[in-house]
Design a protein around this nucleic acid. Sequence first.
DNA 1: CTGAAAGCGCTAACAT
DNA 2: ATGTTAGCGCTTTCAG
Lengths: 338, 338
Amino acid sequence: MPQKITSLDVARRAGVSQSAVSRVFTPGASASQETRDKVLRAADQLGYRPNTLARAMITGKSRIVGILISYLENQFYPMALEVFDNAFKEHGYHIMLFMVGNEDDVGAVVEDLLSYQVDGIITASVGMSNEIATRCSDAGIPVVMFNRGQDTGNHAQVTSDNVQGGRMVAQFLAAGGHRRIAHISGWSGSSTGRDRMQGFVDGLAEHGLEPCAMEDGMYQQDEATGIARRLCSSAKDRPDAFFVGNDHMAFAVMDALRFELGLSVPGDISVVGYDDVPMAAWPAYDLTTVRQPIRQMVRATVDMLVSRIEEPVGAEHLRIPGPLKIRGSARKPKGFTT
Amino acid sequence: MPQKITSLDVARRAGVSQSAVSRVFTPGASASQETRDKVLRAADQLGYRPNTLARAMITGKSRIVGILISYLENQFYPMALEVFDNAFKEHGYHIMLFMVGNEDDVGAVVEDLLSYQVDGIITASVGMSNEIATRCSDAGIPVVMFNRGQDTGNHAQVTSDNVQGGRMVAQFLAAGGHRRIAHISGWSGSSTGRDRMQGFVDGLAEHGLEPCAMEDGMYQQDEATGIARRLCSSAKDRPDAFFVGNDHMAFAVMDALRFELGLSVPGDISVVGYDDVPMAAWPAYDLTTVRQPIRQMVRATVDMLVSRIEEPVGAEHLRIPGPLKIRGSARKPKGFTT
DNA sequence: CTGAAAGCGCTAACAT
DNA sequence: ATGTTAGCGCTTTCAG
């Protein structure tokens, strides 16, 4: 176990002052090429790395961002996490992960976040993100909410254009000749869930239609399958299409329809999801769904957070549109274009 | 933006010394109940939180562990990550995430790990984990490899019993009357891939059989489907069963078999996977697979790392057995028991 | 049990 | 451009 090498060790070996070493390793520094060379050589020989924590103490910037996620079972979030890591890496930040169950102690999480001096926070898919966001904002830490808005608009947020997405689904389904269209919504306590629903209802209305049923799937597979089962219990007034609030639930609904109820998708019932996670393209589901442009969304989120770390600015809400990705799980209108 | 509250602020307000405040917030401290009360009250009023980074500097312990993961698309890893977070939380550690692509610069990752003074490292599913592990070990940072061993056994590692798992699959398939059994293996550069293969080959041999084909699927879906396609190109000498190196690839193989080749699983071909990720239980796949006891594995990994952080000890390799989970993707022998 | 004092490793004025 | 000097906020001897 080699003892820790400090900048002082390097300084001595290079025959310069300790602050010279610091300057060489500090981005906006001023050091002659000669000093630079000596220091770098000595550092290399000794295997020196600057201690980020010590640097953080004095600069007041830890270059750590906290990412709060509530569950990783929905493939959308692991995918986002990968992109977050890459995007933050480019800005020189590292990610500290906080899994926050919806029943967890918000206070404890906030304590941890603060005590680690994170420079900023991303909340992704957290039920109580508002409370955490508010408390952290109050403590002076920038927060950006990813894929979850809030209505009283005090926080920065990035979402896709969920209203527009819902509307596209409605138009697609209506144009496909469906007439009994049900919606198993995302959690109605979330803006994403509500926006998709709203756009969907509006879109149907434009065709003189309204949903034959709307229920809250809570973004949970078992909730969604329960609803699907119930809605399909009587053969004659069963829906001819489901718009499901995200892909994760849509997969479960398709499975229930096909394997429990013996129905054909899309023969008997069309199913449309939301997100376009990689699995949606797998042949077993081949799910028609609204694409959330995850890369763009994550990039925008990171840019927004980083700029707010550098200089605090007001809240903003970015809405990034995504296309409807038409596959085989829903009957296609002839010559339909979005 | 409220200014930072330090222990000195608390001390002044409580009318005690700064070190008294420190003692109250340091686990193994000595402070009278009276001091304690005064300090706690003042801290509460001021909204004081100890600065973990400052503490880390002096104690030399950051209470941060680095987790290195190469990809999150295989559901096994997000699931593991969730459990890791919970388990480490119980020990008072927090996770810094490092996504390490197999082509990434190992050196840079090691730099980051070291500069953040992480107390320990978990490598999960990283191709070059050996090199990283070695370099970090050399720097005095404990490393535990999760779900990936290495042969020159110098590092601590936790895996499931992959040899035994492979053997169980062989016995199950042989007992099911399959005679042309192919193996699309996990990456043969990984111990998990090789061990499963080895156990499988041994298991078949016990029944006087040998695989009709063995190819390296690299843990990648497109590799695996390519192999499956090729192996099934001629109808008469096609395999009657596939043992696939993990569930992630197995799903892709099943899709290719069913939707590209128009074959029935398990009617024409049986498929068995490895991991038992949640999706394996979904009706669309209903995959027979070897369960990796992920919770136990993660717990063991965390315990091992934490104990090595507290006092460095030699390498050990823990192998946790998991059962064969029999579902519908493979023909069942009559009265088969594992 | 408690306060005073000495740093942990580093950056940021401040001089030179 | 470089060295000297203060600390960042905290834990830990060391006296008392």
